[in-house]
Design a binder for these strands. Structure first.
Lengths: 202, 202, 202, 202
DNA sequence: AATGAATGAGCATTCATTCAT
DNA sequence: TATGAATGAATGCTCATTCAT
């Protein structure tokens, strides 16, 4: 069909333009015309690459997840092991989410407007990240560094993810109380209570 | 007097109608006509009691907070004390949030559309609830049941609130893994690690 | 619901405005804004009284049929009888169609754009008129004025209707050849061949 | 030469593609993109061979007339003579129109959308066919097989054409009542009343 | 000669808000 | 106080047409 390279390029332009607008004014208050303009092409061209406005939201959510995942994987210390590795993973996650605060917020607030068929895909990405964390926890348990039951492992994974997200969606309160480093140390302490001391380097 | 009562009555009708619609289709996809109809009066009358559609959202958010607070206070065991009281408070909070899942979700998802001036009011309500929890924790600390620094107390309060909310906004994953009772026990164990055993009665 | 009187009035305005536009430029080239303007109200008001642009077409077709029927019935000589009555009916039909040329043309050309569900209704109106003519023919046959089989009666009715319509849809040729009176006499002679002489008064 | 052949080939592709689409969804609801695709080339190429979408309609109408004419001429028995020949001509016309029902309908319904300059050309084709029939009638009159005045000859020609067309545009009623053969015999009887008996072979 | 990406005017439809009754 | 008809700006989306390659 169409030149795959061009499609990719246009979608990247579109996502970039749309993210900035969604951050600024939300999905519903952003018009397709604005998205087109911000992306650097006409409304007609926009619709050559999407079927409906909601598709833009899906592309945006997908791209944000992809970037969070990429950055996280990049930071993930594969060499470390045990609880120390888990702590570093948590810190890395917090770090990435901090860097992408605005984008993460957009997803939290607009995911509900996703086309019905698209929501499961996006939730699956969230599950993937949760499971990534779960595996790291599992290794700690297997290695004897943590003592947790199956149920508790899953919950801990969810709690870690949510701890990261709340740094953004409760930032009106939390970011006034702590620096990211303080927050990271405190949450690690709380999450892994009784297991270790705060890590120094983040 | 008469007027004030009428205003109150109309607003109650409006909130009741709007909540059900917002739960069903979200704020943006609900029209003022629908709100009026669901409330049992005309669009003209609706605008006698609000200035703009966003005002309805504010009234709704406010009402939801009020109800969560009321129900929570009702359940809060004022007689208990120490860590046991804290656990009961957490369980009560989880219970109330569970009962009002849909409403809490609406707030999470639509608060961003609140009129600029109204957001601080709503955030203040959230702070009030967090501080309510904070005070209970503080009492535990004062009573020696918990050993936490100032910073940690505040964070724990936030974590408790978020743990309650995530029961709704991550329900697509969490409610498949646990019953409310299991979830409550596991979270209490996690939040108050090293301090206590699971409570029996929820 | 809404004031029935007002609905009727608005629809009449709308039909009047739309007919003139459809005659001038056809259904597809007429915009809803133009219809609203020509009707004397705003686009918003237009949509208070219809669900979609196609609904206007249905209302228009329905109204045209109604007027053709009304006028025809008015002219139909109920006193006459036999073949003489049939001739007068044909002449009356031709007369009415001549008066409403433009409207009839609109229907011929735009009926295909009717909403799927509406077409049968409109076709039924055409059948009603055909059957009206059929009954008059049947009376001639019953009275011995005409000798036709069942099959031929129905066909004659259709032929009469089509002869009337072709005065409009072939007017580029036919109205250059004949006056309406000439055309009427010739067609009556052709349709009822071997039965009678041309009528004088039309 | 080469060019002319290519142009011809492309136009044939285009007409073939467009006719099928116009039959399916009408002129206005068919897009130029669809025409290009169905024709087997790109939208850019389409516009190498036409100046506007309306031109496609003209080419289509022209081609349909050409085919109807061709087929009719092919079937026209040049050997016969007098009224018998006329009857065969009518039957042949009905037969051809029956074979090309969909195409004829397209012309009836879309001719009004023809570019202003093109309409006379198409109407001339219709006149040509009418005159073809007129000449055959004239021969009958000259040969003494029919007794008609000048005015009546022309009208009969028009009536014959319209009788053929109504087989398509009133098919929702007529094709439920008669087979093509029945219809042909009945119409011939009606059109040439008092002159002959129904023909046997169609 | 062929392509198809780009364009943007144009369209049907919606909906928050007003105001005469 | 209550009503609901009227408004029109705004929006998502389409599609005939162009033109650089």
């Amino acid at each position: 069909m169409k030149d795959q390279q061009l499609i990719k390029k246009r979608r990247e332009q579109m996502i970039k333009g749309a993210v900035s607008l969604f951050i600024e004014k939300g999905f519903h208050r952003t018009t397709t015309r604005e998205i087109a303009k911000q992306s650097g092409f006409s409304i007609g061209t926009l619709y050559e690459y999407i079927g409906s406005k909601e598709d833009v939201l899906y592309l945006v959510c997908d791209a944000i997840y992809e970037e969070v995942s990429d950055r996280l994987r990049q930071q993930l210390d594969t060499k470390g092991s045990g609880v120390e590795r888990l702590k570093k993973a948590i810190a890395a996650l917090f770090h990435v989410i901090d860097e992408m605060q605005e984008e993460v917020l957009v997803m939290y607030q607009e995911a509900k407007s996703l086309p019905k068929e698209a929501l499961p895909y996006v939730l699956q990405k969230e599950m993937d990240m949760t499971e990534l964390m779960e595996r790291i926890i599992q290794e700690c348990v297997d290695g004897g560094g943590l003592e947790l039951e199956e149920q508790e492992i899953k919950l801990l994974a969810h709690n870690i993810l949510v701890s990261a997200h709340m740094w953004t969606f409760r930032r009106w309160a939390i970011q006034k109380l702590y620096t990211l480093e303080e927050y990271t140390n405190l949450q690690i302490k709380q999450l892994l209570k009784g297991v270790t001391e705060p890590i120094k380097e983040v």
